[in-house]
Design a protein around this nucleic acid. Structure first.
Length: 282
DNA sequence: ACCCTCCTGTCA
DNA sequence: TGACAGGAGGGT
């Protein structure tokens, strides 16, 4: 379930629950995660919980009110979930996909992951420094800066938007939604947008992501104590998952195509290809 | 620019 | 049974 808005939601909700608590132990239950050597984290305090691209970064400090020295970084990939359970009630309901657990004083953070694509890593520096792509919500990303990132790329725009080394955080759902709002065809070459289109793309990106964050993302189960709850953005989806259904704007038919082995949803009428190939060089 | 792969689950 | 799933890294 993880794209930027979902991860942001997880981080925001976990932060007040975890901050200030002290680590009892980190238990790695899945061999796939045990690859790296895991030092003993007991005694560390949790300083903050932040989102970094699509990662949740849990900042750890040896002593309260001192800068963090280590960061436990979780990437949820397709099916990862972080679930907070207060106290250590007896047996947890579903142990089936439990891959790791961070036991704290007062509760446990459980990492579930059915497909086991998710990752856990311990960093010795703030993970923001290792993040190659820019945060789409950062004020540093101006239309000019976005234009420079796009310039020269012949990659199709929708797969380009999902490149984490350019913009960090956009995934398959929001890439389609953003392009619909911007009125830009997903198959346009990324480097061929004119300045007005770049501005529209940036505006749509911010609008969609902010609104999704406001509604706690699209579909996912709550991590308070595993009461399954849908992210509120589900009902605002304009194109994703709506192939064959009428466009909410023009009543035309939403199409589904494959780009780089991933589904793309769009409205051919609202997101037309330009008649003439654009001036865009290169 | 394409392909496959990592894994498991769900749905037509 | 096969297609597909919110991700990403590898290879050619």
């Amino acid at each position: 379930m993880p794209e930027l808005p979902e991860v942001e939601t997880v981080a925001r909700q976990l932060a007040p629950l975890l901050a200030g608590r002290r680590v009892r132990a980190l238990q790695i239950l899945d061999q796939r995660l045990a690859g790296q050597s895991w030092p003993d984290l007991s005694g560390y305090y949790i300083a903050t919980v932040e989102r970094c691209g699509k990662r949740v970064a849990i900042a750890l400090t040896r002593r309260r009110n001192t800068p963090p020295q280590r960061w436990l970084c979780v990437h949820l990939r397709m099916t990862g979930r972080l679930i907070w359970v207060a106290q250590t009630r007896g047996a947890t309901a579903d142990e089936r996909h439990l891959r790791a657990r961070l036991d704290l004083h007062g509760g446990s953070l459980l990492f579930y992951d059915a497909r086991r694509f998710g990752t856990l890593e311990l960093c010795d520096a703030h993970p923001l420094g290792a993040e190659k792509g820019q945060d789409p919500l950062s004020p540093a990303l101006t239309a000019l800066a976005l234009g420079e990132l796009l310039a020269g790329s012949r990659q199709e725009l929708k797969p380009w938007l999902m490149r984490q080394d350019r913009l960090a955080g956009i995934g398959n759902i929001y890439a389609s939604e953003i392009l619909f709002l911007a009125g830009i065809n997903p198959q346009r070459p990324a480097g061929a947008l004119d300045t007005a289109e770049v501005a529209a793309l940036l505006c749509a990106t911010r609008t969609v992501l902010r609104k999704a964050i406001k509604h706690c993302g699209t579909t996912f189960s709550d991590f308070q104590d595993s009461s399954g709850e849908m992210g509120g953005f589900q009902r605002f989806l304009k194109v994703y998952g709506r192939a064959g259904q009428p466009c909410r704007r023009c009543r035309g038919k939403i199409e589904r195509i494959m780009q780089g082995q991933r589904s793309t949803f769009y409205c051919p009428a609202c997101q037309p290809l330009p008649l003439k190939p654009r001036r865009g060089r290169r």
